[in-house]
């Protein structure tokens, strides 16, 4: 479904080139949630952007259902629903207008849009604010609307970049519940989040990134046996406390 092959990307910062993503590879199958985790600045967002074709990789490529994002970006975009932490909503449109707009962009007919909006509105509890101008929505409402927007064309692949950023416990619970729902509906999902407990619950496999490199990869059980730690929080703390060298030394690619 999703396969990432040796993606690398560096950015020019002044005269320095910074390697933001260094040879990252992984696959995600349908009904799988792949947790792409790592501290801020690890390169997760860059990976996601390259998968979507928003950024051109220096090396390697990403493939979705056999379409390479550097060759057929439109085909890839059609099959992906993308939610990011920074995704905004259109201030001067209502939620319904915004959803309809994106429905049309993805080539849905008017009837399809209507039934899809009703469906999503019920699932994500958008009903009470769907006809409100987006500028007046709360963070949680905006984020739910963003999720609905990404799902409007019912894509087989979801890429979620910190979908719960800035949400309270209840708000993020709604999102995580829905991610589980998506998993049950055979979507292939890449999830990037800092909510490690929920990630541990919802993700099937994990990839830990640090400083652009893929440090660890595998199911929760595999991560435990590699690190000797019980849960993601501990693994993360290890990573951040500069014990990364020992971790990087033991990169295990389970493919």
């Amino acid at each position: 479904m999703i396969s990432i092959h040796h993606l690398s990307k560096s950015f020019q910062s002044g005269r320095e080139a910074i390697l933001a993503v260094d040879d990252v590879s992984f696959d995600v199958r349908p009904s799988e949630v792949y947790g792409l985790l790592g501290p801020n600045g690890a390169g997760k967002t860059t990976v996601m952007r390259m998968i979507l074709g928003l950024l051109k990789p220096d090396d390697g490529f990403a493939e979705i259902n056999g379409h390479r994002s550097d060759q057929q970006p439109d085909e890839v975009k059609r099959q992906v629903g993308f939610v990011s932490a920074s995704a905004g909503v259109y201030q001067w449109l209502t939620g319904r207008e915004m959803l309809a707009f994106f429905g049309e962009i993805y080539g849905l007919s008017q009837q399809e849009i209507e039934s899809r909006v009703d469906e999503l509105s019920e699932l994500l509890h958008l009903g009470q604010f769907l006809n409100q101008g987006c500028a007046t929505l709360s963070t949680g409402q905006k984020q739910r609307l963003s999720l609905a927007r990404a799902l409007i064309h019912d894509p087989p692949v979801m890429i979620l970049d910190e979908p719960t950023l800035g949400l309270d416990v209840v708000g993020s619970q709604v999102i995580f519940n829905y991610i589980e729902n998506l998993k049950n509906r055979n979507k292939a999902i890449i999830l990037c989040t800092h909510r490690l407990e929920q990630a541990q619950r919802v993700c099937s496999r994990f990839g830990l990134m640090y400083l652009g490199k893929q440090v660890l990869q595998g199911t929760m059980g595999e991560l435990r046996s590699q690190t000797g730690r019980e849960d993601l929080v501990e693994i993360f703390v290890d990573l951040l406390e500069n014990r990364s060298e020992s971790l990087t030394a033991g990169i295990v690619n389970l493919q």
């Binding site: 928003l54 439109d74 993308f82 995704a87 905004g88 259109y90 994106f102 927007r149």
Partner: peptide, 11 residues
């Protein structure tokens, strides 16, 4: 506002 990326992510 971050809406441009969303639009860019569409086909």
């Amino acid at each position: 506002r971050g809406t441009l990326e969303t639009l860019m992510a569409a086909p």
